[in-house]
Design a protein around this nucleic acid. Structure first.
Lengths: 225, 225
DNA sequence: CGGTAAGACTACTGGTGAGTAGGTAAGGCG
DNA sequence: CGCCTTACCTACTCACCAGTAGTCTTACCG
């Protein structure tokens, strides 16, 4: 996990600004994810980063600015991971499947990022909630668009974007919650967890109870990540 | 919402302990839900409650004790509301439906309670997470039991409690997320929102896309709440 | 119509943490 | 080799907040 152990008591080695900023951001994400925005102190962040407090202020501004920057960086990373993972030229169920895999893959490898994004940011009332709810909104819109698109050809009564948005919100929330559950039950690989959610939201309990399982249509390209 | 405007600058009227405690709890839930545990100050809680700080400490103990008491009270209220709403002698889908209706009904009428339970408590690392995750665990167990039970008679391969628990976590999370979404789109009645989630988790997108909708089997008893 | 105990208050302490002032080392460049 | 810019530090101020000491006041009971 980024190997941040610069707890040398003396003076820090002289480094170019960009590198230090990156170190500080990593430390900040780590501390914020563990303690939350308010309980995290700038002293602790600077200590974890291996520098002193004034550096922190010189480079990243106030505590709120720092936190907002963290949210922006991590949310961007996550959205890019998912966007890269989705196979846009496939049928709806396969798109959803690839998106879920990308999402759980990201969470599995960036637990701190996920903590910051999901828990801390959403529970602060300030301008962070804005930042976060923007990202959440983008995710929901993405899913909603997928739903509307998939509802385009069959005979579903086109219930309107409101309907799709609500369903997307439910789906995104299911993903968030399952990701949290996964943190407490980490022995399973990402693919299994993703497959569970896929079955739930695509097949539904009604089908699952009768033994009807969704599975990927055909192993097209074995992905080697 | 409970009508708490005792912003009279003078001395508070003398009241029996039980009544004051209730007032304080209401104020605490309100403030905690708006600001979160750390950002909420005992001064503000006492002000909203219409009393002074020493009273607060005399009656409810420390800040942590107060918060834990809030969580316990609200979670108990919610679990009771749901337990009362579930019709235990019905088939699985109807049980799930009644449970969802009860849940969204409670959230709609107790938004502050919901905020405290869902957001604030779960993002504090301390013993609160314990309290909260207990309730969450109870909810998940309840749903999981329902799933296992419904999988009891048909030919589903009995995938084990782990499977059920994961699905239950996803379902509970979907409910939480949809409840949050609902707070931002409050123009719809609880029943509609509950029906959306019911359709998602029981039918699945696969069925919904083809126009297959779940609906209550038959209006048995018109409930007049 | 007093006594008294529970209800309520004002006014403080101590600690913690955000943000800053002002000074010190180290690499680059003439 | 000396100067200057940039990275870096120690050591502070100030505000806020959890929790407390000691005092007042009002409802009730005889």
């Amino acid at each position: 996990m980024h190997a941040e152990q610069p707890v040398s008591t003396g003076r820090a080695k002289r480094l170019p600004r960009a590198v230090r900023e990156r170190q500080i951001m990593d430390a900040a994400v780590d501390v914020f994810s563990r303690l939350g925005f308010h309980a995290a102190s700038m002293d602790e962040i600077s200590e974890v980063a291996g520098i002193s407090k004034p550096m922190l202020y010189a480079y990243l501004g106030s505590k709120e600015e720092l936190f907002a920057t963290c949210i922006r960086r991590e949310s961007t990373r996550m959205m890019e991971a998912i966007a890269n993972g989705v196979e846009a030229d496939q049928p709806p169920d396969v798109q959803l499947w690839s998106g879920l895999r990308a999402f759980f893959g990201f969470v599995g490898e960036n637990r701190s990022s996920w903590q910051v994004l999901h828990r801390q940011a959403s529970s602060q009332g300030g301008p962070f909630a804005q930042e976060l709810s923007d990202m959440r909104g983008r995710a929901i819109s993405l899913v909603a668009a997928l739903l509307v698109h998939s509802a385009d050809f069959p005979n579903v009564p086109r219930a309107g974007d409101k309907e799709a948005e609500a369903l997307a919100a439910a789906l995104v929330g299911a993903g968030e919650s399952l990701a949290d559950w996964w943190l407490d039950n980490p022995e399973e690989p990402a693919g299994v967890v993703a497959a569970r959610l896929m079955n739930l939201v695509w097949m539904g309990f009604g089908d699952l109870v009768e033994g009807n399982i969704w599975h990927p249509p055909s192993r097209r390209v074995p992905e080697g990540d």
